[in-house]
Simulated assay, not measured.
Amino acid sequence: MKPAAARRPLLLCALAAAAALSFLLVAPPPPLAAHLSTLLLTFPASPYAPRPKLLFLLAGQSNMAGRGIAPSPLPPPFRPHPRVLRLAASRRWVVAAPPLHADIDTHKACGLGPAMPFAHRLLRESGGDSSLVLGLVPSAVGGTRIWMWARGEPLYEAAVARARAALGAGGGTLGAVLWFQGESDTIELDDATAYGGRMERLVNDLRADLGIPDLLVIQVGLASGEGNYTDIVREAQKNIKLPNVILVDAIGLPLRDDQLHLSTEAHLRLGDMLGQAYLKFNSSTDSRQ
C-alpha cells in the first residue's frame, strides 16, 4: 500500500472530479456552456499528466461531442477516474469529467457521450494494470458536414494540431481515432453520395499528417440523420475500402425525443461497443504478429 503522502494527490483529484460532477448535475441549463467552459479550464491538472498515455482522438459532430442528459446519480462508466485524462482546449491534461467537449464544442450545451464508457471498458479489461493511462483528445463539433473536416479546413487542422499536442505533451501512442459523424450529410443528396470518398480522403490525410500509416479509425455507423439520405451515408460507411478502418453500428440504439441524438443509455452501450471493437482489433493484430 502506498504511503498517505503519495496517495494525497490522487485523493485531491478524485475530490475535485466529484465536485465538478456535482456542479454539472445541478447547474441550470441556459448558461451551461459558459459555466462549463470556465469550470473545465480551471480543472486541476492530473498527477498522471507526465506519464505516457494511450491516446484517442474524438472527432465528428454532436453525437460524439455528447448530447446525453446526465442522470442523478451519474452511472459509474461516466464518472471520473484518475487514469482517464482529457486534453483541455488549453492543451493541459486534466482529469476527464463529462461533458468532455464543453470547451471545444462551445456553441451548444454538451452532455454525455460515448468516450467515458469507452475508457472505462478499456480500464476494466486492463486487468488492474496501474501503468495504463488513457488520454482523450476531444475535437468534435456539432452540426458539421464531412467536407468541413477536409485537409486545410479549420476543423481538420485543429484536430491534427490537438493530436500532435497530445502526442508531445507527456508522450504516448495514438491508439485510434473514434469518429462519429454523418448526420448532417444526410440532408443533401450530393453530400450523401460523396460521403464515402470524402471519408477515405480524411483517413488517408490523417494518417499522412500524423505520420501513422496504419492508424486505426473506428467509425460509428449512423443511428439517425437530419435528412432523407441516411441509408446512403450508412452504405458508404459500410463500404470504406481502407485497411484498419472498422465500423461499430449504432443503428437501433435509443434516441432522445429529437430522434437525432443518442440517449444516455445509448451512449453507455455505444461506449462499451467501441471498447469491445478496439480490444478485439488489437487482440487479432497481436495474434498475427
Rank of each mutant, 00 (worst) to 15 (best):
S22F: 07
F23W: 12
L24Y: 14
L25T: 14
A27M: 12
P29C: 08
P30V: 05
P31L: 03
P31K: 10
A33T: 10
A34G: 08
H35N: 14
H35R: 15
L36D: 07
T38C: 10
L41G: 14
L41P: 07
T42H: 11
P44D: 09
S46C: 06
P47D: 11
P50I: 11
R51D: 15
K53Y: 03
L54R: 13
L55G: 02
L57H: 10
A59P: 02
G60R: 05
R67V: 11
S72P: 07
S72M: 12
S72H: 13
P73I: 06
P73D: 04
L74A: 12
P75F: 02
P77Y: 07
F78N: 01
R79E: 08
R83N: 10
V84D: 01
L85N: 01
L85F: 04
L87D: 07
R91Y: 15
R91K: 11
R91S: 12
W93I: 06
V95Q: 15
V95T: 15
A96E: 01
A96Y: 00
A97T: 11
H101S: 13
H101D: 13
A102M: 09
A102K: 02
D103T: 04
D103S: 01
I104Y: 05
I104S: 02
I104R: 02
K108H: 13
L112W: 03
P114V: 01
A115H: 05
A115D: 10
M116N: 04
M116I: 03
P117K: 00
A119P: 02
L123M: 11
E125P: 08
G127L: 04
G128Q: 07
G128F: 02
L132K: 08
V133T: 12
G135P: 00
